[in-house]
C-alpha cells in the first residue's frame, strides 16, 4: 500500500511580513525540501508535524486528515504518528539513550518490551554501547544515531527530518545519510527531509521540492533539479 502525504500549508506571521504558501505531495521515499535558510522550510516541517498551526490549508496522509482549515480538523501532534528529527536533535538530557528511544515506543506494549525495542534500535544503528549513558557524553555522530533510533523506533507513518546532519563533518555525514535513506526505504513511508546542502540532498533524496521565500519554485526528481555539477 502506498500512501502519500499531501501538504497544502499557509502560514502568516503577523508583523514580520513572512508568509508561507506551499503545496506538494510526498509519496513513500525521501522528499527533499531544498532552499536557503529563512525560506520557510523548517516552519513548513513543524506545520506538518502539528507543532505550528497553519493559518490555512490542509495536511493529510492518504485519507487520514491531520489538518483542515475548512472543516476545523487539527489532530494533536502526539496523535499524528510522525517521527521528527530536530536540527538540535533534542535528546532528553536527563534520560539514558535507552530511555530516550523507549520514550517514543507505544506505551501499551509494556516497559520490558519497550526497553527491548529500544536496545534493538540502538544496536541496529551501531550505538548499543551507549544504552545506559546520557546524551551529555555522546559525540556528534553518536547523538545523531541515538536521535535517529528514537525517531524510527516508534514505527512512524511519516518521517520528518530538519537538517539533522548539519552539525556533523562530511565523513560522518555521508555514512549517516546512507543509513537514513536505507531506514526510510525499509519503513516504506513518506519522509520529508529539510536541507540546504546539495550533496546531502543528492545522497538521500528521491524527489526535491525547491522552496524560495515561502513558495514552491519547482518540484521534480533530484537529478533533474539538483544536477551533480555544482553551480546552478
Amino acid at each position: 500500500m502506498t500512501v502519500a502525504l499531501q501538504v497544502d500549508v499557509r502560514v502568516r506571521r503577523e508583523g514580520s511580513g513572512f508568509s508561507l504558501d506551499v503545496a506538494f505531495e510526498a509519496p513513500p521515499g525521501v522528499t527533499i525540501l531544498f532552499g536557503r535558510s529563512g525560506s520557510g522550510k523548517s516552519t513548513l516541517l513543524a506545520a506538518i508535524a502539528g507543532l505550528v498551526r497553519p493559518s490555512g490549508g490542509r495536511v493529510a496522509l492518504g485519507d487520514e486528515v491531520w489538518f483542515d482549515a475548512g472543516s476545523g480538523v487539527d489532530r494533536p501532534v502526539e496523535r499524528r504518528g510522525v517521527a521528527f528529527v530536530f536540527q538540535s536533535l533534542a535528546l532528553f538530557p536527563h534520560l539514558t539513550a535507552e530511555a530516550n528511544v523507549a520514550y517514543g515506543v507505544d506505551p501499551s506494549i509494556g516497559r520490558v518490551d519497550r526497553r527491548r525495542r529500544a536496545r534493538e534500535m540502538l544496536d541496529r544503528l551501531g550505538v548499543a554501547h551507549l544504552a545506559l549513558r546520557r546524551p551529555a557524553t555522546f559525540s556528534g555522530g553518536e547523538a545523531q544515531r541515538v536521535a535517529l533510533a528514537r525517531a524510527i523506533a516508534r514505527s512512524p507513518s511519516v518521517v520528518l527530518l530538519d537538517e539533522p546532519l548539519s552539525s556533523l563533518d562530511e565523513e560522518l555525514r555521508d555514512g549517516l545519510a546512507a543509513d537514513i535513506r536505507a531506514f526510510v526505504r525499509e519503513l516504506g513511508v513518506p519522509a520529508v527531509y529539510v536541507t540546504h546542502d546539495r550533496a546531502e540532498a543528492r545522497v538521500i533524496g528521491d524527489r526535491v521540492v525547491l522552496i524560495e521565500a515561502g513558495r514552491v519554485r519547482a518540484a521534480g526528481s533530484v537529478d533533474e533539479l539538483l544536477p551533480a555539477s555544482p553551480r546552478g
Binding site: V77, E78, G81, V82, F86, A90, P93, Y103, G104, P107
Partner: peptide, 24 residues
Amino acid sequence: TLLAAARTLGAGPARAFFTVALPL
C-alpha cells in the same frame, strides 16, 4: 524543543510536562 520532541514522540501535554519539563 525538548517539549516539542516529547509531543512528536506521542506524549500528550500532561505526559510531556511530568516526564520532561518537571524533571528538567
